[in-house]
Design a protein around this nucleic acid. Structure first.
Lengths: 245, 245
DNA sequence: CAAACATATTAGAGTTGTCTAACAGGAGGC
DNA sequence: GCCTCCTGTTAGACAACTCTAATATGTTTG
């Protein structure tokens, strides 16, 4: 007769429409084509066919030029999508410390692509932090830590013990490595575009690589990892803390 | 002449193709249509047009029936995508404690939808944990904590201080609430499908709601939040820890 | 060498989701 | 009552992505 809840596999776009309707109905008491179009940032002409599909799936009651109602199934599906949205947003903003607008945008985009298990583990983490006073402190600290402040000096995170701090200052950068040596990246220093550029090139903490050679004009370093060779300038290399193995 | 790196907006599918090629070339030294199709779980017939598009964008060199080569631009774009993939996977597996296969699948799916800033903050968190011995301990603890073990008794996380534990056992469930009272959810107990069902219905820690009435046959609770009414059975409500406000 | 096989490409069709532009319906103002 | 504005709908076009089935190419083997 009706499709069972388990059988319904909504596309990300339809999930988005459904969620938008849910939020509008919950907030304003009704959902109109115009508001849906505004919220989803599409033209009104795109909304009608989407509503027809949702109606065919039995998730909404959609009659031409009437307010849109959610069916029981539609409401429960929408609530699930929205719940995942909220988990993700709170995880990004409240836990990782991202600005609200970035957290909201990323939550919108990624919510359709994470498994139940992943969002559930995020909730576990919330609960864990709630249970452990130490965890709560530690995370408040993380978010306000020197590490996450733009332009902060490397290694100045106050949470580091003296020993960690000292061993950090003893640690070498890529510039201290000789050709042929294999190293393990422990940290990328700095902030902003330079750091982003290094991360984009795959130089993540906890990555191993080998210095193959130094190209003399400019002392560019050529390192090998993931089966490719990547060139790094001397000034960039100074921001890559490594352990030589 | 050529599109600049900034101007290129790859669709998720094309990003995936590019990343797959990068991984195959790095691993095997070459990339064939067949392997790309296998890795992406599509039919070979879908690969050729995708390669043509990547070629037109100047990201690969694609000549009929030849091995596929990455251009310099393609290689750097691919590395960026793959880098994000690795960050996300390590975040999910290493930090949240998800099983490797789930982490890999979710990383694959979500990597195209998160901003630079978000992945960068994840790296900050890695580095923070690396810097702070306490943070490292705490997270090892989180992952092995009773809280995250299937079937664990609620409130038995050893990291909780005695005070937290006691106040927890004093805390009320939804069943202790009277109609008209507003409450704040502090935790969802239990594990498995029941917990999932409650989370799917939007009952997340840190959510506020109002008990509107109790429907007598069966003592189902009707609560109001987000502008909707949701029905919760007595046995489900016993798993919802609340603070009455 | 030719047949058999693995691999790659193309053509055609279908789905989803978007747009624009033209059109329809309803509510309020004159 | 009629006109206008706001809103919603439809049709037609298009871009991405996928599939299947047919075809082409190259390699291995008898």
């Amino acid at each position: 007769m009706f499709a069972k809840s388990q059988e319904i596999h909504l596309t990300p776009a339809l999930e988005d429409y459904l969620e938008t309707i849910y939020r509008l109905v919950g907030q304003d008491g009704f959902a109109r084509v115009k508001d849906i179009a505004t919220a989803r940032m599409v033209k009104a002409g795109s909304v009608s066919p989407a509503l027809r599909r949702l109606d065919e799936l039995g998730l909404i009651v959609y009659e031409r030029r009437e307010f849109i109602k959610l069916t029981e199934l539609g409401e429960s599906l929408a609530r699930r999508v929205y719940s995942r949205h909220r988990i993700l947003r709170r995880f990004l903003a409240g836990f990782l410390g991202l600005p609200e607008d970035v957290a909201e945008a990323d939550a919108c985009a990624a919510e359709h692509h994470l498994s139940n298990m992943t969002t559930e583990y995020m909730v576990r983490l919330f609960e864990f932090i709630e249970m452990c006073p130490e965890a709560k402190e530690l995370f408040d600290h993380f978010r306000s830590c020197a590490l996450v402040q733009p332009g902060a000096e490397p290694g100045l995170c106050q949470c580091a013990t003296l020993e960690t701090y000292q061993s950090l200052s003893l640690r070498q950068t890529l510039n201290d490595v000789k050709p042929g040596q294999k190293v393990h990246i422990s940290r990328i220093l700095g902030d902003g575009p330079l750091r982003q550029k290094l991360l984009d090139r795959g130089l993540l903490p906890n990555t191993s690589l080998e210095l193959t050679r130094v190209e003399e004009p400019g002392r560019d370093l050529v390192v090998r990892f993931q089966g490719f060779e990547v060139k790094i300038s001397e000034s960039e290399a100074a921001h890559v803390l490594v352990e030589i193995s």
